[in-house]
Design a protein around this nucleic acid. Structure first.
Lengths: 193, 193
DNA sequence: AAAAATAAACAGAACAGTCTAATTAATTAA
DNA sequence: TTAATTAATTAGACTGTTCTGTTTATTTTT
């Protein structure tokens, strides 16, 4: 028999709470309440709120990275089509979530990108991990002649994902997927060979 | 002789502080300290922190709108070229600011877009004001045949500005203009007729 | 004098983080 | 196998600070 609480359950609650409410808008007490653990246990697992958030971001980024890896590896579509499928899926998920949270890494980048070096660095690292996956797919698309060769695969990946985050941010305020769909149409029209 | 303090000075300090640090990371006391006014005066001018932030956003959005209007009206460049000049200028300003703040409206959208209806609505309103200016310029560019007619001018404006905010967010974490420049090159290559 | 603005003390809640004690699990010794 | 010991986890009351916002009194402008 293990102990009553475990770190990963707390991190899962933290992910949800931080993604929806941000960093400075969330108190440790809220995490404690929602995960049902007392304060002593929390500070047994985590050094501080900052350390906790860093681990939440890391866990989220890594699990997303693994999921993306699998998604593209298992895809039977062409590189360009699998990139389209990926973003179509992201848009659908965001819609089903009622535009209520967006992406934790994107949110954190914006909120603490210049005020907290530790968290900024962690978010950037996770973002770069994703970029590399996307760039690899883009490169295959370039090699197969379906994606423009005017830009490097990494430039294309940055363009895709930063653009997606831009339109994701807008959907958070407009609470609509309309311009996400337009972004999708336009972007993939633009980057094809 | 007027009174010692006036609202607009406080709003200016608030703009700077909120843009750099966000909403929930800033206490009224910080604004009081930096603007040199006591608490009683603050609550004489503003109903609450939220009301204060709303007015800061409104002031920022409106003054930016006026500036944009003038920028495009005074421009001797073609519509497409003046759009390029506008974003080139924005990128330069952000660089000179050492990527330290980004755009207040964009930051607020992300931070409170789903947790504060009043501020979300205010940010969206200001964003829409800018969009309309950009869309008008884009439409002229379409009429003159230098910008693609595959999308409406409003879709183009959304694409431009959301994309710019996406890459702006990235620059906040990477602290570099590299991918902003790439975004600029790519986007304007894409939208030309 | 009336109204607006200023000033600072004050209130109550929320904040991150600490402390001591108790319980439970894992390890070692007999 | 059981007993003794050590280590990890749990529990929540508590600390000191900071938060937004109030109150009361005073000063300044009209």
């Amino acid at each position: 028999m293990g102990y009553k609480h475990n770190k990963e359950d707390i991190l899962d609650v933290g992910f949800d709470v931080l993604r929806r409410n941000g960093y400075h808008n969330v108190g440790i007490n809220q995490v404690l309440k929602e995960s049902g653990i007392p304060k002593g246990s929390f500070y047994n697992f985590f050094e501080s709120k900052e350390d906790f958030a860093r681990q939440v971001i890391e866990r989220y980024g890594c699990s997303n990275l693994a999921w993306m890896d699998g998604f593209f590896k298992d895809s039977t579509l062409s590189p360009l089509e699998s990139l389209k499928a990926f973003y179509a899926f992201m848009i659908k998920v965001n819609e089903e979530d009622a535009y209520s949270g967006g992406c934790l890494v994107n949110n954190m980048s914006m909120e603490v990108g210049r005020n907290n070096d530790l968290l900024a660095s962690e978010t950037n690292q996770q973002f770069i991990g994703w970029l590399n996956v996307l760039a690899a797919v883009a490169q295959k698309g370039q090699e197969e002649g379906e994606i423009t060769k005017k830009y490097t695969s990494l430039e294309l990946a940055e363009y895709l994902h930063a653009g997606f985050f831009g339109t994701l941010s807008r959907s958070k305020v407009t609470r609509s997927r309309v311009y996400m769909d337009t972004w999708y149409e336009m972007t993939f029209e633009f980057i094809k060979a």
